[in-house]
Design a binder for these strands. Structure first.
Length: 183
DNA sequence: AGGATGATATCC
DNA sequence: GATATCATCCTC
């Protein structure tokens, strides 16, 4: 299985979010491949998006999200859960896609539905902050046996503070998947 | 419905 | 230096 090229990420964030659905997230983790199929994501559209961390500007925390596409933006939320994003669009744009749920494919020890659980199941933590996804250890690959899917659009989860941005349909998931984090 | 638990931003 | 807040999850 081969990592998607950086050009895949260097495009419109909503388009990347759509195309990530059904792809495989792969982590080569002490001798085994942990693999999950991406079934749920959210798009974060940069500094003008009040729900995006980059709306706070360039800080040590948001450095990776303002960085070049195809890298991981990992952070700790509520003191106990890690969340993983993939950075999109050219360096400096501050856009990313949050990975919210996976369908287990191989070696996932616990449920990967929900951004915190996803990171726990894949073995992802702050050590992967800024990790290049065009690498052999942690990357996203094409689904070797893709099936047609329908995409559902909903408002994002947990961003009620973001004013009019909270209502925008920027959460995407595969219709009918039993592995999405909530209905 | 509420608590855990720590990094971060934003005040003084 | 103090405090409020948080792209969540588990337990009651």
């Amino acid at each position: 299985m081969q990592a998607l090229p950086r050009d895949f990420y260097n495009r419109n964030t909503i388009q990347v979010a759509h195309e990530l659905l059904g792809k495989f997230l792969v982590h080569h983790f002490n001798g085994e491949d942990r693999i999950g199929k991406i079934v749920e994501v959210e798009a974060y559209l940069g500094p003008q998006d009040l729900a995006a961390h980059t709306s706070k500007g360039l800080t040590p925390r948001t450095r990776a999200m303002f960085g070049p596409p195809g890298h991981a933006y990992v952070y700790l939320i509520y003191g106990m859960h890690h969340c993983m994003n993939v950075v999109t669009e050219p360096e400096g744009t501050g856009t990313a896609v949050l990975l919210r749920a996976l369908e287990p494919v191989a070696n996932l020890p616990v449920s990967a539905s929900g951004p915190g659980r996803l990171c726990k199941a894949m073995g992802i933590d702050k050590g992967h902050y800024g990790h290049d996804l065009c690498s052999p250890t942690l990357f996203i690959a094409d689904n070797p046996d893709p099936a047609p899917i329908r995409i559902v659009e909903r408002p994002r989860i947990g961003v009620d503070y973001a004013g009019e941005w909270a209502a925008k349909p920027l959460r995407f998931y595969i219709e009918g998947s039993p592995y999405i984090s909530r209905k």
